[in-house]
């Protein structure tokens, strides 16, 4: 390429973290309820479920709440990126820059992760305590696997969120679309109950959703619903595969520059 006038001192690669750390952190700092809502929401559902279900399901439901929290990042990502694109035309500034769509996605996903970390830490502590109290403390490798699963869901649902946001046309659509997508995905997969509770046809549908494998894997590793190592490996593989497929589709749908 012919060099533009002042190419020295002109970065050709954008950066995500330095910008979105500030964008995310300021958002939480200046809107306290925004920080509180994602922390409280999973507990509201957890409380509701613990009231209507048998006590032995509690650890499963705590893990479910963690997965649910990660999945919900998708709807926050959707809301942010859609309002920045539609209401403020701010996305234009990032498109016409060296940043690139993946760094932008990562930035928004990251700034929303910041808001979820307190909830995850509290839920994690609760899980550790409940399991320890029952005489089955969570082994170290199980924590690592849990982290890995949470990471996969973060990537997957942030991508889905931004993909949908790039297709939404008005502010009005954001809330219903996000609500529909993420609530239905959350309901279809057995986050809050063993998959065996579901009617057979439903179980079949659930097996098409990455969150299902995330739930099965974590429930198995924690010994909540015991499973053979082979089965767990299969779940891990299917989680990886379905996540990869989901991310690929999402990234294809994610429009950075409309046609």
């Amino acid at each position: 390429m012919a060099q533009p006038v002042r190419s020295a001192n002109l970065p050709t690669e954008g950066r995500s973290l330095p910008a979105f750390l500030i964008i995310g952190w300021r958002w939480i700092g200046r809107n306290p309820a925004v920080a509180i809502a994602p922390i409280l929401l999973p507990f509201i559902f957890l409380y509701f479920l613990s009231l209507i279900s048998p006590a032995e399901l509690l650890p499963l439901e705590i893990v479910g709440a963690m997965l649910f929290t990660l999945q919900n990042i998708g709807s926050w990502v959707l809301g942010d990126s859609a309002s920045w694109r539609i209401e403020a035309s701010l996305q234009d500034l990032f498109v016409a820059s060296p940043m690139g769509r993946l760094r932008y996605l990562f930035g928004i996903a990251f700034s929303n992760l910041i808001a979820m970390i307190p909830a995850l830490v509290i839920l994690g502590t609760l899980l550790g305590y409940v399991e320890w109290d029952r005489g089955t403390p969570v082994p170290f490798y199980a924590w690592l696997i849990l982290l890995g699963v949470l990471f996969a869901l973060w990537v997957l649902f942030s991508s889905i969120g931004i993909a949908i946001s790039s297709r939404v046309k008005t502010q009005r659509e954001i809330w219903p679309v996000g609500n529909l997508t993420f609530a239905v995905l959350g309901m279809l997969s057995p986050l809050y109950y063993p998959i065996s509770y579901l009617p057979p046809a439903w179980q079949l549908v659930a097996h098409g959703i990455p969150t299902t494998y995330a739930a099965l894997l974590v429930q198995g590793v924690l010994g909540i619903t015991p499973a053979a190592t082979d089965t767990l490996l299969l779940y891990a593989g299917l989680l990886g595969l379905s996540t990869a497929i989901g991310v690929t589709i999402a990234l294809r749908l994610y429009r950075w520059r409309p046609g």
């Binding site: 209507i52 279900s53 529909l180 609530a183 309901m187 809050y192 109950y193």
Partner: peptide
């Protein structure tokens, strides 16, 4: 015109009903 919003206004209720149906149908 907001047919989408209309349809999705029932999502949370639907999810909670399903939870009850699966976990405690008596309720």
């Amino acid at each position: 015109h907001e047919t989408l919003a209309m349809a999705t206004s029932m999502v949370v209720q639907g999810v909670l009903l399903v939870f009850v149906w699966i976990l405690n149908p008596g309720l």
